[in-house]
Design a protein around this nucleic acid. Structure first.
Length: 311
DNA sequence: TGATATGTTATCTT
DNA sequence: CAAGATAACATATC
């Protein structure tokens, strides 16, 4: 599912391709996805793209921001002049864009490419300036759970999702929320009597971890997902903390897991799904011992673990 | 055909 | 009030 590594992958793509583009207009095909007034972002230029947990923010130069949560099946796909040649859309996009799952289209104009002109053509700068090209950012969402909110940049913190987001594991260059240090993690884990896995996935306590990485981190740390958080020893907490950072980093390296509909900002798949430690491996052999991976429901979510080596 | 999957939020129960 | 359970959302896929 789209979790920290997946959303970070999209963020990096948008940073690369979207910054400098001006929003010409927004075509909202499914109104329930968008809240706020799209007129507020028309004419605004993209100056930054940020990520908070699993949430994305596109900042404009007119003091408005676009806050986005892709939930389970959202996709943000860029098409425009910054694209390198031959980018093949994944099948998960559902055909050429826009398609029946495209609910919002941001129509953009790229800024003129100044450095592209060489010395000889300096004279042409006037025409060059008028040569901004069209670009598009498509929001696709099969299950329509995601949301896009137009909000004044200064009021982002008022959105409940951002306001209530817990500290997140420090695995990227810059993070928008408080970093989850080992000390902080210890404090959170020690103070709660809930099962450890639902705790890892609780965005209000820890930001960015979802079902895939929670399962894999607990497997890596050899901890039973159903253990009460309070019952973990300091050594186990430390091990789990390191496992969380480890699996998230591998997820980042693999540019996310293309489970369900995840694709990056160019519509390409990630590859962490080829590296799952336990996630989705019900009935298969444990990668560490002879155990058979079992699936249970914890906190209403599918939970995979090896009863033989996760204690 | 019907069960399943899932992140987040809302609502109800304990 | 905290925390757990459950449902709701929507739809492709098995």
């Amino acid at each position: 599912m789209p979790e920290l590594p997946e959303v970070e992958t999209i963020k990096l793509g948008l940073q690369k391709y979207l910054i400098g583009h001006r929003i010409e207009g927004v075509d909202v095909r499914l109104p329930k996805i968008v809240q706020g007034n799209v007129k507020d972002i028309e004419g605004g230029k993209v100056i930054a793209v940020r990520r908070f947990g699993k949430g994305l923010v596109i900042d404009l130069d007119n003091d408005y921001s676009i806050a986005i949560h892709i939930k389970l099946t959202g996709q943000l796909i860029y098409r425009g002049p910054n694209l390198r040649q031959k980018v093949k859309l994944s099948k998960k996009v559902g055909g050429s864009l826009p398609n029946k799952w495209t609910h919002v289209i941001f129509k953009l104009k790229s800024q003129p490419v100044r450095q592209a002109q060489d010395k000889k053509t300096k004279v042409k700068s006037a025409t060059q300036n008028s040569k901004a090209t069209d670009a598009y950012l498509y929001y696709n969402d099969i299950r329509q759970f995601g949301w896009i909110r137009i909000v004044e940049s200064s009021k982002l913190k008022d959105l409940s999702f951002f306001r209530d987001l817990g500290p997140e594991p420090p695995v990227t260059m810059s993070i928008g929320v408080q970093p989850l240090t080992l000390e902080l993690f210890k404090k959170i884990v020690n103070s709660l009597n809930t099962a450890i896995k639902p705790l890892l996935m609780d965005q209000k306590r820890i930001g960015g971890i979802g079902n895939i990485y929670a399962n894999d981190a607990l497997f890596d740390a050899e901890i039973d997902p159903g253990r009460k958080a309070k019952s973990l020893s300091d050594a186990e907490i430390k091990k789990l903390y390191n496992s969380i950072l480890k699996v998230l980093k591998i997820g980042l390296r693999e540019e996310g897991a293309s489970e369900l509909s995840f694709v990056n900002a160019l519509g390409e798949e990630g590859s962490y799904q080829n590296h799952f430690l336990v996630y989705g491996r019900e009935g298969q052999k444990c990668k560490r011992c002879n155990g058979i991976i079992k699936k249970i429901i914890l906190g209403g979510r599918g939970t995979y673990f090896c009863p033989n080596c996760q204690k």
